[in-house]
C-alpha cells in the first residue's frame, strides 16, 4: 500500500525541506520507491536541496493542469535510482493549484511509488492545506522554540479537520520530528526539552534531529543530509526516523556529533 506522507510545520524555516529530502532519501536507501513532491509554488527549494535545480523542465502545476505527463516531470535522482523529485513551479501563483489537479497527480503517483513525500509550504493557506489534503501520514516538524511549537499545534488541528482522511471520519497518523535540538542547552534548562514539547503537543515522537553544521554543509552542495554523510549525527537521526516511519522499532536516542577518533579521521574525508 503506497503511503502519502506530508512534511508540515506551520512556521517557516524549521526544516521541512531539509527533512523531506533527508527522509525521502533514507526511505529510498532502504529500497522503497520514493517520490518527493514540492508544494511550495512560487518559492520552490526542494530541487535545490536535492541538487536537481538545473534539471527541472516540467513541474507539479504542469502535470496538475495536464500540460505535461507525470513521467516527463519526474526527475530521477543521480545517486539513487529509486528516488524521484517532482518540483514546484517557480513562476506560477499558488492559486494555480487546485484540489482536483492535486488529487489527479497524487492518484497517479500512488500507482508508481511506495512513498510519496509532500513538502508543504509554510503557513496555513492553500499550498499548505493542499499538501496535507490527501495524506495518510503527517510528520510535523518543530524546533524547540515557542513560536514553532505554537504553530505546530495549529497545524495538528488542521490535520485533524481539513484533510480528506479526517473528513471521512478517519484518523490522520501524526508524528513529531524535533529539529535543531541542542541537548546541552535543553539539559541546562535554556531550551524546551523533548519531554516538554511532547507533553504540549501530545503526538508521538518520530525522532530528534540535533543541531548540526552538517545540515548546512549538505544543502550547500545539494545533497540530502542522509546521503551526504552516513555517519553524521543528523544523518543517523533521519535514518532512524525513516525506519520508524516504516514501523521498525528503533530505540530513541539523540545522536551527537561528538565523534570517536576513527570517525574524526576518516569520516571527515567522506563528507
Amino acid at each position: 500500500m503506497p503511503k502519502i506522507l506530508v512534511v508540515t510545520s506551520g512556521k517557516g524555516g524549521v526544516g521541512k525541506t531539509t527533512s523531506t529530502a533527508a527522509l525521502g532519501a533514507a526511505l529510498a536507501q532502504s529500497n522503497h520507491k520514493v517520490a518527493v513532491v514540492d508544494f511550495d509554488v512560487g518559492l520552490r527549494n526542494l530541487d535545490l536541496v536535492m541538487g536537481a535545480e538545473r534539471r527541472v523542465v516540467y513541474d507539479l502545476i504542469n502535470v496538475a493542469q495536464g500540460d505535461a505527463k507525470l513521467h516527463q516531470a519526474l526527475i530521477r535522482d543521480k545517486r539513487l535510482d529509486n528516488l524521484y523529485l517532482l518540483a514546484a513551479s517557480q513562476t506560477r501563483d499558488k492559486d494555480a493549484l487546485t484540489e482536483d489537479g492535486v488529487r489527479r497527480v497524487i492518484d497517479e503517483l500512488r500507482e508508481r511509488f511506495d512513498w510519496i513525500v509532500c513538502d508543504s509550504p509554510a503557513g496555513i493557506e492553500r499550498g499548505a492545506t493542499l499538501a496535507m489534503r490527501f495524506a495518510d501520514v503527517a510528520v510535523v516538524v518543530a524546533n524547540p522554540e515557542v513560536s514553532s511549537v505554537r504553530d505546530s499545534d495549529r497545524i495538528i488541528g488542521l490535520l485533524d479537520a481539513k484533510t480528506e482522511i479526517a473528513e471521512n471520519g478517519g484518523r490522520m497518523e501524526k508524528h513529531l520530528l524535533l529539529t535543531r535540538y541542542d541537548a546541552g542547552r535543553a539539559a541546562r534548562g535554556e531550551m524546551l526539552n523533548v519531554e516538554d514539547v511532547l507533553e504540549i503537543l501530545s503526538i508521538p515522537l518520530l525522532g530528534v534531529i540535533p543541531e548540526s553544521e552538517e545540515v548546512l554543509r549538505a544543502s550547500n552542495v545539494g545533497t540530502p543530509v542522509t546521503l551526504h554523510s552516513g555517519v553524521s549525527a543528523p544523518s543517523r537521526a533521519y535514518a532512524d526516523a525513516a525506519r520508524r516511519l516504516c514501523g521498525v522499532e528503533v530505540p530513541m536516542e539523540i545522536p551527537s556529533d561528538k565523534k570517536g577518533l576513527l570517525v574524526r579521521l576518516f569520516g571527515r574525508r567522506a563528507a
Binding site: 505554537r150 534548562g189 535554556e190
Partner: peptide, 21 residues
C-alpha cells in the same frame, strides 16, 4: 540559582495553547 528560561517557555505555551484550543 539559575533555572533557565525553558520552564517559562513551557508554562507560557501551556497557558496559551489551552486557550487557543
Amino acid at each position: 540559582n539559575r533555572r533557565g528560561s525553558a520552564p517559562v517557555a513551557r508554562e507560557r505555551l501551556q497557558i496559551l495553547l489551552a486557550h487557543e484550543r
